[in-house]
C-alpha cells in the first residue's frame, strides 16, 4: 500500500493547484475488518490472531486501491468537467463525468461530482440518489471529505424537496465527517 501511494505522490502538487480533490487528500484509513466475499472459515485452532486472518480479501484491496490513489484518468476527466462547467457548459460537464463512469465505473468521486452538478441543475431527486450511490462506493471509514461532500449534496437535495428535518440530519452528518 505504501508503495502504491508513494507512486502517485508526484501528482500531489498538480492536484492542489488545479482540482478540488480534497476527498483524496487524506491519509488512507487503516483497512477495516476482514470480511470475505464468500463466508470464510476461521484459521485452524491454535493459529489465533494470525496475520493470515487479518489479510484483506482480494476484492477489498481492489476497491481500496480505487478509493485512495489518484487515478490519472479520473483526475483528467474531473478537471475537464470543471473547466467545461466554468465555461457554462453544465451538460457537457456531465457528459464528461459520465465518460469517466464508463472507464472507472466504481469511482465514488465521479458519482459525487455528478451529484453536485445535478443539484446545480435543480434536479434534487437525481442528485440525492447520485450522492447516495457515491457513498455506497466509499468503503466505510475512508474518504471522509468525499463522504461529507456527498452528505452536503443530500442535505441540499432534501431541502429542495422540502424535507427540512431530513436535510438538517444530513447536514449534521456532513459536519461530523468534515
Amino acid at each position: 500500500m505504501i508503495y502504491r501511494t508513494t507512486g502517485y505522490l508526484f501528482l500531489l502538487p498538480l492536484l492542489s493547484g488545479c482540482v478540488d480533490l480534497s476527498p483524496y487528500q487524506q491519509i488512507p484509513a487503516p483497512v477495516e475488518g476482514n470480511y470475505p466475499s464468500v463466508y470464510r472459515q476461521s484459521a485452524p485452532a491454535g493459529n489465533v490472531n494470525s496475520q493470515a486472518a487479518k489479510v484483506t480479501p482480494h476484492h477489498e484491496v481492489y476497491e481500496e486501491k480505487r478509493a485512495t490513489v489518484i487515478d490519472p484518468v479520473v483526475l483528467a476527466l474531473v478537471n475537464e468537467s470543471k473547466a467545461t462547467e466554468q465555461r457554462g457548459g453544465i451538460s457537457s460537464a456531465i457528459s464528461t463525468l459520465e465518460r469517466g463512469v464508463r472507464i472507472r465505473p466504481r469511482d465514488p468521486l465521479l458519482w459525487g461530482r455528478l451529484a453536485k452538478l445535478r443539484l446545480q441543475q435543480d434536479k434534487p431527486v437525481l442528485a440525492e440518489n447520485l450522492a447516495r450511490k457515491s457513498l455506497a462506493l466509499i468503503k466505510s471509514g475512508t474518504n471522509r471529505p468525499l463522504q461529507s461532500s456527498n452528505w452536503l449534496v443530500i442535505a441540499g437535495a432534501l431541502k429542495q424537496q422540502g424535507k427540512i428535518k431530513e436535510a438538517n440530519l444530513a447536514s449534521q452528518k456532513a459536519k461530523i465527517l468534515k
Binding site: S42, A43, A45, N49, A53
Partner: peptide, 11 residues
Amino acid sequence: DESCFGVKQFP
C-alpha cells in the same frame, strides 16, 4: 470466537 474450530464469518 474467531479462535474456535470450524467457525465462519458471516455478514
